[in-house]
């Protein structure tokens, strides 16, 4: 039988359903006779619920932030266009350099 410390250590993984079958059974066996750890488990479950509830509330995305985020991508498009134009001009540019030399 695992100790209270071991049971408490595993409670969150137990609640997240991430324990092996053996470890889960060990926690179940402990909770079956330990009233205090049942309280710990109930408290951990409620705390987990509180955290998950907080995760469902997101700060709003301001319109100006969204605009700025997407505007950065436009600079790439502009850059791409310039790059394309540069590469199209490249042979002529090289010729000019060769002529100058």
């Amino acid at each position: 039988m695992i100790s209270c410390a071991d049971a408490v250590q595993r409670l969150w993984s137990y609640l997240e359903d991430e324990l092996t079958a053996t470890d889960r059974q060990a926690v179940d066996d402990h909770l079956a006779f330990c009233r205090r750890c049942c309280g710990e488990a109930e408290f951990a479950a409620e705390l987990r619920h509180l955290l998950a509830s907080a995760g469902e509330v997101s700060p709003p995305l301001p319109d100006d932030v969204e605009s700025r985020l997407l505007a950065v991508l436009d600079t790439f498009e502009t850059f791409d266009d310039a790059e394309t134009a540069d590469s199209a001009d490249q042979p002529g540019g090289n010729e000019e350099v060769q002529r100058d030399s």
């Binding site: 997101s58 700060p59 995305l61 932030v65 969204e66 985020l69």
Partner: peptide
């Protein structure tokens, strides 16, 4: 774009 609100929240 549809992912921006939750991405910004995270």
């Amino acid at each position: 774009r549809p992912h921006l609100p939750w991405l910004f929240g995270l």
